[in-house]
Simulated scan of single mutants.
Amino acid sequence: MSDDKSESRIAKLVGLAAAAGAAWAAGKLIDSLWTKAFGHAPPKADDDSDDIRFREVAAAAVISGAIVALFRASATRGARKLIG
Score class of each variant (00 low, 15 high):
D50C: 03
T35Y: 11
A73H: 08
V57N: 07
A75R: 03
E56M: 12
A41I: 00
G78W: 06
G21N: 05
G84Q: 12
G27Q: 11
D50V: 02
A17E: 10
A75C: 04
A22G: 01
D47K: 11
M1G: 08
A18Y: 10
S2W: 00
D4L: 00
D46Y: 05
L33K: 03
T76F: 11
A41H: 01
A23C: 14
V62C: 12
D48T: 03
I67E: 13
G78R: 06
G84Y: 09
S32M: 06
A59D: 10
D48V: 03
A26G: 03
S32G: 05
F38Y: 04
F54M: 01
A59Y: 03
I10H: 12
A79N: 06
R55D: 09
A23H: 11
M1C: 04
K44Q: 15
T76I: 15
I83V: 15
E7W: 00
I10L: 10
A17G: 12
R55Y: 10
V68R: 12
A45F: 11
V57G: 07
A17C: 14
R55T: 11
A17F: 11
K36F: 02
R53G: 14
I83L: 15
R53K: 15
A66P: 02
A73V: 07
S32Q: 08
L16P: 00
L33I: 04
S8Y: 02
A41S: 05
D3N: 08
A61L: 14
E7N: 07
L13G: 15
A58G: 03
S64A: 15
V57T: 12
I30Y: 07
L29C: 03
A25V: 15
K81A: 09
K81S: 06
L82C: 11
A79L: 07
K36P: 01
S74T: 04
A18W: 09
G39A: 13
A75H: 03
L16H: 01
M1F: 04
G65P: 14
A73R: 11
A59K: 08
L70Y: 08
A11R: 15
S49A: 08
S74Y: 05
V68H: 11
I52V: 14
A58Y: 05
D50I: 01
A58F: 09
L13C: 13
G84F: 09
S2G: 10
V57D: 06
